[in-house]
């Protein structure tokens, strides 16, 4: 069974097609990642699935409910944590949780219990009665996520949950999200532009580019499609690129050779074993190499393969 079904969603802002027939499905009880650079359409997809925005075309069901026909029912079934931390800074952590829960029509008693439970689980019990403006960024984010969970939603949307957090807070948030998925049996849709985050948390993911899903699968499946390691050589200057490319072609097993600036990339079966051969070939061609690195296939490589651009290029 699928808890989220997006079916050829289209959304245009003026002439810009933010979503261009975006489709994907999320099985119940799994963590699904929408991975893509800023502006790929991830947040627009989340806005439509959470009923904040209406699609211009296509349709979607969340928790089995049609988002266009019954938005109020969808709203009762989902929790939503947006990109921006959205807690009321003047209210205490507890007050934030209580007000938010009250909007779902929870009873006072139910609400007090649940708020206490969530503050304990997110390590906010001690800070519960302090104003949220005194919280650190990581604590505010935790409170934010706790608010999204107050009414025990069936589906949780996390839109870039760790953007703006320092590495330590990010790691803590990852642990928390992984635990949520395992313990509460929630279906989680996570959007991110951190490859590492999608790799760590998502059971399956869709890579989104220019409003379309370009590929989908588990992180391992996607990486294993690539077969082999990436080898990246950075030349001292870009003049040697044509000769270097030519030389690399003659190295046994090197394939998918691409160049960008003074950087050469190729894929080989065993990176460590290929480095001497690559260096020898480049040396023989009279090309000066500044640095050479070998990397196991990463989602970055998957992204490069499906979109023709590296993730960093797009993010920059």
């Amino acid at each position: 069974m699928e808890s989220i079904q997006a079916d050829r969603l289209v959304k245009a802002y003026g002439k810009v097609r933010a979503l261009d027939e975006l489709s994907f499905g999320v099985p119940t009880g799994t963590v699904f990642g929408l991975l893509g650079p800023n502006g790929a359409g991830k947040s627009t997809a989340v806005k439509i699935l959470t009923t904040l925005s209406r699609p211009d075309g296509g349709n979607a069901r969340v928790a089995g409910i049609d988002v266009r026909k019954n938005p109020d029912q969808v709203r009762a079934a989902i929790g939503c944590v947006t990109q921006k931390i959205s807690v009321d800074p003047q209210a205490t952590g507890r007050e934030n949780l209580l007000l938010h829960g009250a909007l779902y029509g929870m009873s006072r008693r139910q609400l007090r219990l649940r708020a206490g439970e969530l503050m304990a689980r997110f390590d906010l019990a001690e800070a519960a009665d302090r104003q949220a403006r005194t919280y650190s960024g990581g604590m505010q984010r935790k409170l934010d996520v706790a608010m999204g969970l107050i009414h025990r939603p069936r589906v949780l949307f996390l839109d870039e949950p760790t953007t703006g957090l320092d590495p330590e807070a990010r790691a803590a948030m990852w642990t928390e999200i992984a635990r949520l998925a395992a313990e509460e049996g929630l279906t989680i849709l996570l959007t991110t532009h951190y490859l590492e985050e999608a790799d760590k948390l998502a059971g399956a993911l869709a890579i989104v580019d220019r409003g379309k899903v370009v590929t989908t699968g588990s992180p391992d499946e996607l990486k294993s499609q690539l077969r082999g390691d990436a080898i990246v050589a950075e030349l001292v200057d870009s003049q040697g690129i044509p000769q270097a490319e030519e030389a690399l072609r003659r190295v046994h097993g090197a394939r998918e050779i691409t160049t960008a600036g003074r950087v050469l990339r190729a894929r080989v079966d065993d990176g460590a074993a290929a480095v001497p051969a690559v260096l020898a070939a480049l040396d023989a061609a009279g090309v000066k190499v500044g640095a050479i690195t070998v990397a196991r296939p990463s989602l970055d490589d998957v992204y490069l393969r499906h979109t023709g651009r590296t993730f960093e290029e797009v993010a920059a």
């Binding site: 904040l52 939503c80 990109q83 959205s86 009321d88 909007l103 779902y104």
Partner: peptide, 13 residues
């Protein structure tokens, strides 16, 4: 600006 409006609009309020 704080994102509170959007957060409230995705509740059944």
């Amino acid at each position: 600006d704080r994102g509170i409006m959007d957060r409230v609009l995705v509740t059944p309020v």
